[in-house]
């Protein structure tokens, strides 16, 4: 889901930059209020974890493997504001230091994977888990559903970003200059692969990590709530 350079026109990537720069400032202030001076190493390590979790190969039926984005579990543990910063930092490091994901697309990538996944994931999790016990089955079911919905929401938004390119940036004779597929192709293409594969991987990983914490260290599931 990392959008590379060349896929988005300036009409798209400039507004995303205009949104994400002040957003990160506001989010940093919110985080520093809730977790105080611990935020520097916590955000750095949260970002490093967000980066590294994508490296894990998860076995899936059929003998192949898939990857998880991991944004939802980070949001459940650290809260949506800290998670959105951590994932955004991971994306900036990937783009600037490892050449993975476009430099012009940093704003859009941070919005899709940082902001959308963190907030949709966290609030769907909260909605389903409610005030249930930390060891409750509802918790990991909430994790699975939030992982699935958040990843698909981000994929559909990325699909919309691709799909509007032929409408807003085309050559003199109408040929697309950036991502070449219209909304009618880009959105279903992005949605289908996430609905039938990557969404399930994210759901599985989020649910299994919550179950692991329920069995081994329940305090990790109360970090965000306890810090507020």
């Amino acid at each position: 889901m990392h959008i590379p350079d060349g896929y988005l026109s300036p009409q798209t990537y400039v507004p995303f930059y205009a949104f994400i720069i002040p957003y990160l400032g506001i989010a940093a202030r919110k985080v520093s209020k809730s977790i105080r001076s611990r935020h520097v190493p916590l955000l750095a390590l949260g970002a490093a974890f967000s980066f590294v979790i994508m490296m894990f190969n998860v076995p899936i039926p059929g003998g192949t493997t898939g990857h998880a984005v991991g944004g939802v579990i980070v949001a459940i543990i650290l809260g949506p504001w800290a998670a959105s910063i951590a994932v955004s930092i991971a994306l900036i490091v990937q783009a600037l230091l490892f050449g993975d994901g476009g430099i012009t697309a940093i704003g859009a990538n941070c919005f899709n994977m940082g902001v959308v996944i963190s907030f949709v994931g966290y609030y769907v999790y909260k909605l389903i888990s409610g005030d249930s016990e930390i060891t409750s089955t509802r918790r990991w079911i909430a994790g699975a559903v939030s992982g699935y919905i958040a990843l698909n929401a981000a994929a559909v938004i990325a699909g919309i970003e691709f799909g509007i390119q032929p409408m807003i940036a085309s050559g003199a004779d109408g040929h697309p200059l950036y991502a070449p597929y219209p909304l009618s192709i880009a959105v279903p293409a992005m949605a289908i692969e996430h609905l039938i594969l990557f969404g399930f991987v994210e759901a599985l990983v989020t649910a299994l990590i919550i179950r692991y914490f329920q069995k081994t260290d329940q305090s990790l599931l109360t970090i965000y709530g306890g810090a507020k």
Binding site: F49, V52, I53, F56, N57, V58, P59, A68, G70, I73, V74, I77, L204, V205, L208, I209, R211, Y212, F213, T216, D217, L220
Partner: peptide, 11 residues
């Protein structure tokens, strides 16, 4: 096992 190692890494 993979999820437990991710969880361990997060912890």
């Amino acid at each position: 096992w993979v999820a437990s190692r991710m969880g361990y890494l997060l912890k």
